[in-house]
């Protein structure tokens, strides 16, 4: 369970988030949307433990959480295979196992021909797949997705949404998806939370069309 309780936050230039409470149960996908500057990414960074809220409380009882950011954030000096395996390396998984696990995942993501390439040799869509692979490699039960397809064109975007949807289903993952694209929120989320402009407040919370 991920629980954000009565979160308020201030970066020093006015309030970004005002009294927000959210919860996310295992296996559920919560899409978080709202105008830019409403603090939705800040909320996700709080869930990831990268930002400490000014007020309120974050509790995350998921076994393992992994993040995918808007930019792929790949290590330019490592191949796609090594990038996918980065989280496993951080966990202390041995080389041979890292290799076999990242290769299996790469096949699932359609990256088998890209394994030996460096990030600058890959297209934007491929790089974002590698980033997704890196997150899935550590076998999380919660995925935090911060506008993961925001930088891609419409075609790639639809392709990757489809792939993410089937991966979430087949692995029974919970996910918090931050997006400014309402169609994406409806398509991927079980539930939708709409935040207001700054300071961000919860305007509505409802089930998406995906479940209806």
């Amino acid at each position: 369970m991920l629980k954000l309780t009565a979160i308020s936050h201030d970066y020093g230039q006015g309030t970004v988030l005002a009294d927000i409470s959210l919860d996310l149960a295992p296996g559920r996908v919560l899409a978080l949307t709202g105008p830019s500057g409403c603090g939705k990414s800040t909320l996700l960074h709080m869930a990831a433990g990268l930002v400490t809220p000014g007020a309120g409380h974050v509790s995350n009882t998921f076994r393992r959480t992994a993040c995918v950011f808007q930019e792929p954030r790949l290590l330019p000096w490592r191949t796609a295979r090594e990038n996918i395996a980065f989280g496993l390396k951080a966990l202390g998984v041995r080389g041979a196992e890292r290799r076999s696990r990242s290769e299996a995942l790469a096949r699932r993501l359609g990256l088998e021909d890209a394994l030996a390439k460096y990030p600058h040799q890959l297209s934007g869509g491929m790089r974002q797949r590698v980033a997704l692979g890196r997150a899935l490699a550590v076998e999380p039960d919660l995925l935090l997705l911060d506008e993961p397809f925001g930088a891609l064109d419409a075609g790639r975007r639809a392709e990757l949404q489809e792939m993410l949807l089937s991966l979430l289903r087949e692995r029974g993952l919970a996910a918090l998806l931050v997006t400014h694209d309402l169609a994406e929120a409806e398509r991927l989320g079980d539930e939708l939370v709409v935040l207001s402009g700054a300071p961000g407040r919860v305007l509505e919370r409802r089930a998406t069309q995906k479940r209806l």
């Binding site: 990268l50 954030r73 290590l75 000096w77 390396k89 951080a90």
Partner: peptide, 24 residues
């Protein structure tokens, strides 16, 4: 910073931060 932030979400140990991010 973005790479270091990414590494933090994987609880990357200091030694790995040094060899895989800072040194390269």
């Amino acid at each position: 910073r973005p790479l270091i932030e990414m590494a933090r979400t994987y609880q990357t140990p200091k030694a790995l931060l040094l060899t895989d991010i800072y040194l390269p």
